[in-house]
Structures are given as C-alpha cells and as structure tokens.
Simulated assay, not measured.
Amino acid sequence: MKKYAPSKAHSDIVNEPIAAYGYQNFDDAGLFRLMDIAKHGISFKIFDNITKKFPFTMQEWADFLHISAKTLSRYQKEEKSFDTLQSEKILQIEILYKRGEEVFGSADGFLIWLQTENMALGRTKPQDLLGSSFGISLLMDELTRIEHGILA
C-alpha cells in the first residue's frame, strides 16, 4: 500500500490559521479540504507539531484520541498516519486552538482557560472535554459566548 504524503495544500491547511474566521465560517470548499485531509490521515509529524502548542502529555493525547499511549508511541516510531476519526479529532482540536487564540488574544490566555475549572461548564476543565466531538463543539460555543461577552 502506498504511504500517503500530504500535498502542499494538505500540509498548508494544517499550518495556516485554519480557524481564523471561526469554526462555523468555513466555506464548503474549506470543509471538503479538511474532510479530505482527515480521510487520508494526519501524519505523526504534523500531529507532533500540533501537540507542541499544548501543555498536554502524550498520555492525555492518547486519551483524547481514544488509543493507548503504546499505540501512540508506535505511530511515532513507525511514522504512521492516524485513521480518519483520529485525524478529524486532531483537526478539531487544532481549530479549537486557533479559535481560542483569536478569542483570548493569545495562545497563553487560551491555554490558561483550557486548564482552569469553568463554572459555565459545570465546574469542568475545558481540556477534559477534548475527548469528545460533542465536547469540542461545546467548547467552540463557549468561546463564541466569551467573545460576545456572555459569561454565564
């Protein structure tokens, strides 16, 4: 089986500020590009670049992706790409990061929010919701409320 190497367009969309216009504002072409990237799989190299933005351990990333830390380590050693569902989750977390950076004005502000217990989220740390697509959607909604000054 031929190993998938993302085209320049695929790697650029992960590296460019893909959420600069907000998650809901992707046009159809942008969403289809993201779906195509996920379908072909995010390489471990791209994943590793994304993980460097966050203070999470590899065990936490494994939990978010619903795989074992051993499997994640094997992906790294074998330079494997993630499957479609894992790739979608990685992209969703990257989009959330970009949106959070936009709303808080800095990555640091967003990361502090992500790790701080939140009353609006039932005293849950936002990072605890990253293992679920529904959780990520809830966080995107919360970022929109923060942006518009609706804090409770």
Rank of each mutant, 00 (worst) to 15 (best):
M1I: 07
Y4R: 15
P6E: 11
S7M: 01
H10K: 07
S11C: 14
S11F: 14
D12I: 01
D12L: 01
D12N: 10
I13M: 14
I13N: 11
I13R: 15
E16I: 13
P17H: 10
P17L: 10
I18M: 14
I18R: 08
I18P: 03
A20M: 07
Y21C: 09
G22N: 05
Y23N: 07
Y23L: 05
Q24V: 03
D27N: 08
D28M: 13
L31M: 11
F32T: 02
R33T: 10
R33I: 05
L34H: 08
L34F: 12
M35F: 11
I37K: 15
A38Q: 07
K39N: 13
K39T: 09
I42R: 02
I42D: 00
S43H: 05
F44T: 02
K45D: 07
F47A: 06
D48C: 03
D48F: 03
N49E: 05
I50Q: 01
T51K: 13
K52F: 06
K53N: 09
F54V: 15
P55Y: 09
P55M: 06
P55R: 09
F56P: 04
Q59W: 04
Q59F: 08
Q59Y: 06
E60L: 00
A62Q: 03
A62V: 00
D63F: 12
F64A: 14
F64D: 15
F64H: 15
L65P: 08
H66M: 08
I67K: 15
I67T: 08
S68Q: 06
S68M: 07
S68H: 10
S68G: 12
T71M: 14
L72Q: 02
L72A: 05
Q76F: 05
K77D: 06
E78L: 14
K80F: 14
S81C: 11
F82S: 02
F82Y: 01
D83E: 00
D83K: 04
T84L: 07
L85S: 13
Q86L: 00
Q86K: 03
Q86F: 01
Q86C: 01
S87G: 04
S87N: 03
E88D: 10
E88W: 10
K89V: 04
K89T: 10
L91T: 01
E94C: 15
E94G: 14
L96N: 04
Y97M: 15
Y97P: 12
K98Y: 11
G100H: 04
G100K: 02
E101Q: 14
E102T: 15
F104R: 12
G105A: 03
G105K: 03
G105C: 05
S106K: 06
D108F: 04
G109L: 01
F110L: 08
F110G: 11
L111V: 06
L111C: 06
I112H: 13
W113I: 00
W113D: 02
L114D: 02
L114P: 01
E117Y: 05
M119T: 05
M119P: 05
M119F: 05
M119I: 03
R123T: 01
R123I: 00
R123C: 02
K125P: 04
K125V: 02
K125C: 09
P126G: 11
Q127G: 11
L129E: 07
L130P: 14
G131H: 15
S133P: 06
S133E: 07
F134Q: 12
F134E: 10
I136Y: 11
S137G: 15
L139R: 07
L139K: 07
M140Y: 04
M140C: 01
M140L: 03
D141H: 09
D141S: 11
E142K: 01
L143I: 01
L151R: 12
